[in-house]
Design a protein around this nucleic acid. Structure first.
Lengths: 263, 263
DNA sequence: GAGTGGTCTAGACCACGCG
DNA sequence: GCGTGGTCTAGACCACTCA
């Protein structure tokens, strides 16, 4: 939608130029539509798990063709922000009610990829407010000294403690979070974040190293101090690349492994 | 292309049913086109780095619309089998001449994501033919006792030995591979595989663990035996999910880390 | 059978790369 | 200025879901 009037231009489809002179960057229409849908997604016009309007409806709303809306939604689906179901509609993705729960947990049991183990048992060791260290602040794009929540917990599979985690959350969006909430919610923690705080983790990056635990870490994981462990440092982001969680995990890899697909 | 004659059906676009009765699985036209392009790709009709025919040409060849060809190519591009360049054409992907060389190597220096380090220096420790162990045979879909090539090498960054690798290749497609070839080829090893043996690694899976090196491993990597290392076991596949390489790497993570993006 | 996403077509026009 | 991929439209039909 840049120059000449394509069949119907009485509404207000997002303009491309308009403000300046020669188009500085050129953003195709479907990208602009994608941006509008994303905006609605962020601002909670549709909640996780709900259906968004049909392609035809959205096309009418934005005064573009169905094909353009389709391409916008295609990209959102490719980014896992939205899930298409033929014959039913397009739904806002959620970490809950998802075949692949624990989307971000790449640790699998060595034998049998299936999750016969069932979900992890959680033990909360600690949950407190404190001032962000310089490093935590930098990761979470806060100022050093801002209030953050720190949670320390153990995840066990079939009774065996396997993951020791430290989680840092900005206090602001997670005000009121309690250890009980962390412990008692059934299902993925990220699903609880969606439900109780409206925070959706959309993507994450992990840095992985091999380390040796200190004595207390070794005790929590029930291993000897000489046992090598995987150190997994995760930064999880909401919409717009806003970091929302820093997580440091120690993974036992004697019965499990970190699995990754490359392409 | 299932029942009624859409505008032009004089040629031989791939049929959907034809053999049986009620369509058993339904494969859309563009998937069939994708399959045909893939077939040409596998059989070397176009070599890595070369351009494939334009969308219009392919549409004419297969007697379908450009849009259908486009969707087929879109999927191939999404799988990194092919690379689109606006204004120029669509090119067969290659591990060589690629901005992102070392596509499958996820180890980054802790400071500075850029590859200021330059490419890794390679030291070949060993390169020999032997009979596949049961385990190697299983991974590579061979019979135990089939001939395989084993390469042991060290990768160093800025002079520091960082990765100790064992590579197993089926002897069949790699007949004639020498230690000199492994050592002297400039650029990614996978690029050499493409060039000299016509083998294209298309995707891979990795299993990652934390381990302690034995004495000789520790010596090669110039670390003490108590130093925890990342064990990265990679199975790389060509077209059609045929496994073509098994690789076991030990990564030092004191100055580097394994980086992974989740979504 | 109505509604939704999915496929396919045909044609017009745009942005980009290169000679 | 041509050829290539990229965008956008409009309309027809198909496959799937559910009432």
């Amino acid at each position: 939608m840049s120059s000449l009037p394509p069949p119907s231009t009485e509404g207000t489809p997002p303009a491309n130029g308009g403000t300046g002179v020669a188009t500085p960057a050129f953003s195709p229409l479907y990208q602009q539509i994608k941006g509008l849908i994303l905006h609605s997604l962020q601002h909670g016009e549709w909640k996780p798990g709900e259906a968004i309007p049909s392609e035809i409806e959205l096309a009418a709303r934005f005064r573009v063709s169905q094909g353009t809306v389709r391409k916008a939604i295609d990209e959102l689906a490719a980014e896992n922000l939205v899930t298409r179901r033929q014959g039913k509609g397009t739904f806002v993705s959620t970490h809950a009610e998802r075949q692949v729960q624990y989307r971000f947990l790449k640790l699998l049991p060595d034998s049998g990829d299936a999750r016969v183990e069932g979900p992890a048992q959680r033990t909360i060791l600690e949950c407190r407010r404190l001032r962000a260290s310089a490093e935590v602040a930098r990761s979470l794009a806060l100022r050093a000294g801002d209030s953050v929540i720190q949670i320390k917990r153990i995840l066990s599979f079939v009774g065996v403690p396997t993951i020791l985690e430290d989680i840092w959350l900005p206090n602001q969006p997670f005000r009121g979070l309690t250890a009980e909430q962390m412990a008692h919610y059934q299902g993925p923690t990220y699903a609880m974040f969606e439900l109780d705080f409206g925070v959706r983790m959309v993507r994450a990056e992990e840095k992985i190293r091999a380390v040796l635990p200190d004595e207390t870490q070794a005790q929590w994981l029930n291993v000897t101090p000489g046992t090598p462990l995987l150190s997994v440092e995760r930064l999880a982001y909401t919409y717009n690349d806003v970091p929302m969680e820093l997580r440091r995990g120690l993974y036992r890899t004697d019965t499990h492994h970190y699995h990754n697909k490359l392409s």
